[in-house]
């Protein structure tokens, strides 16, 4: 069945709301407006205002309230409009949700799901476009997910809600309109990365909104006779080191593609794990394609220049292959 990333997210929420009376959705404009990215369109009519709960513009307040509701036996899905706005809720996420189980000696796990949009590409400039997944992936006590396919958009929410600990899900804003075939079995293992394309010459490791670009780069490389393996990390914390090591073990070369800024990026962490685990498997230094270190600009040509793009990925792969 063909569906969109947005529709897949909506179906996942609809299913969760129907299956479990403890599940509810809250966030800015999730109800009457239908969701900033229309992910919750129609859910208010179906489930009512108690369970599709519009909030004031109070990220700190309603994310914190989500934590409290989770402690009180509910299974909240809290939607934050963008990762930039989520910085107003970093305190409850990092200082409370992530810490509470441990700080309380195991007494208070927080079964909370926070969903938010991330990423650039729509000329929304420097306060709506950033990729800060690695900020969250740095923090012990939370799981961080990044669905990059229609199937994962459909399949990640149920195991995230079943997780007794906080889960942060990053939906790349450029992917909402993406159409794709929804496989019959869309269930998702939120512990493992996924190999999206097999190939023996080089590993291209990415996640989220960079996956379509990376798959396109692999096509370009195939035309040049280079077989690239594409790995979608999809679980940004805890990282699936085994899958990373396995692909590098097969190809001996790697490029990491990450829309985050290079310094202190997830790409840097993946590189470190490759060096720790696969140093003697490598035939060449690992390379990475990240965003330029600049607040994302408005003008289209500047924004495009700031982000990882297919030609940059292809060039980096050629470089690693010495071509």
């Amino acid at each position: 069945m063909k569906t969109s990333y947005r529709e897949a997210i909506r179906q996942a929420m609809r299913e969760a709301l129907a299956a479990d009376a403890r599940v509810f959705l809250m966030g800015e404009d999730v109800g009457r407006y239908g969701g900033t990215y229309a992910c919750s369109k129609g859910l208010l009519d179906e489930f009512g205002p108690e369970r599709i709960r519009d909030t004031p513009l109070s990220e700190l307040g309603f994310v914190g309230a989500g934590i409290g509701a989770a402690l009180g036996g509910m299974r909240p899905i809290v939607e934050v409009m963008t990762v930039n706005f989520s910085l107003l809720a970093l305190d409850p996420i990092v200082n409370t949700a992530a810490a509470l189980r441990h700080m309380s000696g195991g007494q208070f796990p927080v079964p909370l799901v926070v969903r938010m949009a991330t990423g650039a590409g729509r000329q929304l400039a420097a306060q709506h476009s950033h990729s800060l997944e690695n900020w969250y992936a740095h923090v012990p006590g939370i799981r961080v997910l990044a669905p990059a396919t229609v199937s994962d958009a459909r399949g990640m929410l149920a195991p995230a809600l079943a997780d007794p600990d906080p889960v942060v899900i990053f939906e790349h804003a450029q992917l909402y309109n993406q159409e794709g075939e929804l496989p019959e079995d869309w269930r998702c293992d939120i512990c493992r990365a996924a190999v999206r394309r097999e190939g023996g010459d080089i590993s291209l490791i990415t996640y989220g909104g960079s996956l379509p670009k990376t798959l396109e780069a692999a096509e370009w490389l195939a035309a040049e006779g280079i077989a690239a393996e594409v790995v979608d990390l999809r679980v940004l914390r805890p990282l699936d080191t085994a899958t990373i090591a396995a692909t590098v073990g097969r190809t001996h070369r790697a490029v990491i593609v990450d829309e985050g800024w290079r310094s202190g990026s997830l790409a840097a962490e993946v590189m470190a794990r490759i060096l720790e685990n696969c140093f003697f498997d490598l035939d060449a230094p690992v390379a990475r394609v990240c965003s330029e270190e600049v607040p994302i600009p408005y003008a289209k040509h500047l924004e495009e220049a700031a982000l990882p793009q297919v030609p940059k990925i292809v060039a980096a792969a050629r470089g690693v292959l010495g071509k």
Partner: peptide, 15 residues
Amino acid sequence: GGLPLAAGLALADRM
């Protein structure tokens, strides 16, 4: 930090 938490606990009770 406890205030939003309390609001959420109360919300869970209400719901």
